Structures are given as C-alpha cells and as structure tokens.
Computed example of a mutant assay.
Amino acid sequence: MTHDHDHDHDRTVKPMVDEITDFEVLEIALRELCIEKGIFTAEEHRRFTEFAEQIGPTPAARLVARAWLDPDFKALAIAEPLAASKEVGVDWLEPTGFGTPSDFTAFQILADTPTVHHVIVCALCSCYPRPILGNSPEWYRTPNYRRRLVRHPRQVLSEFGLYLPESIEVRVQDSNQKNRFMVMPMRPEGADDWTEDQLTEIITRDCLIGVALPRVGVTTNIVVDTRLAMHPSGE
C-alpha cells in the first residue's frame, strides 16, 4: 500500500491562531526592546505577568464587606483608599515596589447612596483598577459599552438586568490615564446579621463596576434579563 504524502500533509493539525494581531506584534517588539535595553529582565517580566494573572476581585469585595460592618473603615476607604486597600492585602506598589505607569495612579472608591448609583467606564480605552479588581472583563473594553454608557447609562444597565427607578441618579465615572475608580454598593436587605465572609461572597466583580447590585443568594457574575442593545456602537 502506497503512502500518500500529500494527503498526510493536508491532515496536519494547524495552529489555533494562524497569525498574530498588530497589537501582539507591538507587544513582542516592545517587550524584547525593553529587555535588550535593560529596562527589565525576562525573569522580571515573567514574574509580573504571573502576578497580574492571579489578581481577582475578592480583596475588593472584602474591602466593601468590611466597610459595611465598620463605619470607621468605610470612612478610611473613602478618604484614603490606598491605605484601605492594604488592609485587605492589596499594595498598589507591588510587584515592582513602585507600581506600574498604568496602574499606580489616583484611586477613588465611589460609595453608592439611596439616591445615587455609580458605574465606571473608560470611554477612551480600557483604564481599570487592576491591582484590586484584576483584569477587566472583555465587555468592559468593547466600544459598545464604552461609547454607550456615557450617553445611555440606564439603557446599558438594563441590558445587564439592572433597572433603577428614576428617583435614583446614575453617575457615570469616566476613568482616565491618572485616575481609577471602584464602586462601593449599598448593603442589600436580608444580610443584616451576616459576617464579613458571608458578605464578601455576594459582592461580585460586576457590583464593583456598578452594572449589578449585591443580592442575597447571588455569588457569581451573572447577567439576567438581558435585552438586545437598542443603540449600536457605530451610531
């Protein structure tokens, strides 16, 4: 039996990505140039990458839960959010000892009230408080969210299943190169006697962005009652 070499080559498994994007080419070129110039080493880059990938929103959730239970800590979180961050294990200077140009910036915690609800966005690009919330969700970086939230905030929130009465003012806080924000939502009804650990479980990443509210029994970042966008990003 003859062996069909051409047929064999046709069956060769192809890589998952046939070509890399322009941004990936730029990242590789910049990274290699920085290593070559001695700005950082390959080992330092590896350690920072691993550090960034393991960050999640749990410390931020614990910060909010502690603020719900302790008025003094809440005052600290609003007045000195970097100091409050350290209380839950987040040092904005890590892992380099001096932070990073994109992350070590002015950080502010926005406390919701019975009449004001906050939601964060970066209308220009994707600025996000990564040291305390981890990497931003993909939808946060899309033009659809960025462009529409500043113009149609209630409509966008409704697409996340969050319907707020007209009596509540919606304040959209736009992040930028020098400022990062995080939302401190209000404590939900039915959790009056809960411990800090119990409260931490219901404060999801989406609550800390402002597109959801903490609810008893909800411990994951879910999207409910979603409607299609009425205002596409290309308008």
Rank of each mutant, 00 (worst) to 15 (best):
F40C: 13
T41E: 03
E44V: 02
E44W: 06
H45S: 06
R46S: 13
R47W: 13
F51E: 13
F51W: 15
F51V: 02
A52D: 12
E53M: 08
E53S: 09
E53F: 10
Q54E: 15
Q54Y: 11
G56S: 09
P57L: 08
P57T: 07
T58Q: 13
R62L: 05
R66M: 07
W68F: 08
L69A: 04
D70G: 08
D72Q: 15
F73K: 14
A75E: 14
A79D: 05
A79N: 06
A79S: 11
E80M: 02
E80N: 13
E80K: 10
P81N: 09
L82E: 09
S85G: 03
K86V: 05
E87F: 02
G89Y: 08
G89M: 11
V90C: 09
D91C: 06
P95E: 13
T96R: 11
F98K: 15
T100M: 08
T100C: 02
P101D: 12
S102W: 13
F104Y: 14
F104S: 11
A106H: 06
A106W: 05
A106P: 01
A106D: 03
F107P: 03
F107C: 01
L110D: 03
L110E: 02
A111F: 02
T113V: 05
T115Y: 04
T115E: 15
V116C: 07
V116M: 07
H118D: 00
V119N: 00
V119A: 04
I120Q: 00
I120T: 00
I120L: 01
V121L: 00
A123L: 03
L124A: 15
C125T: 14
C125K: 14
C125R: 09
C125H: 09
C127S: 12
C127I: 05
Y128I: 10
P129M: 03
R130K: 11
P131N: 10
P131Q: 09
L133V: 01
S136D: 05
P137R: 10
P137S: 12
E138A: 14
W139N: 13
Y140W: 14
Y140D: 14
N144E: 15
N144L: 05
Y145E: 08
Y145S: 09
Y145M: 07
R148I: 00
L149K: 08
R151H: 07
H152A: 03
H152G: 02
Q155W: 08
Q155A: 12
Q155E: 13
Q155F: 06
L157S: 12
S158L: 03
E159Y: 03
G161A: 11
G161I: 06
Y163N: 07
Y163F: 07
L164D: 06
L164M: 03
E166V: 02
S167N: 01
S167D: 05
I168G: 01
I168V: 13
E169L: 01
Q173G: 00
Q173H: 04
S175M: 12
N176M: 08
N176G: 07
Q177L: 15
Q177H: 10
Q177R: 15
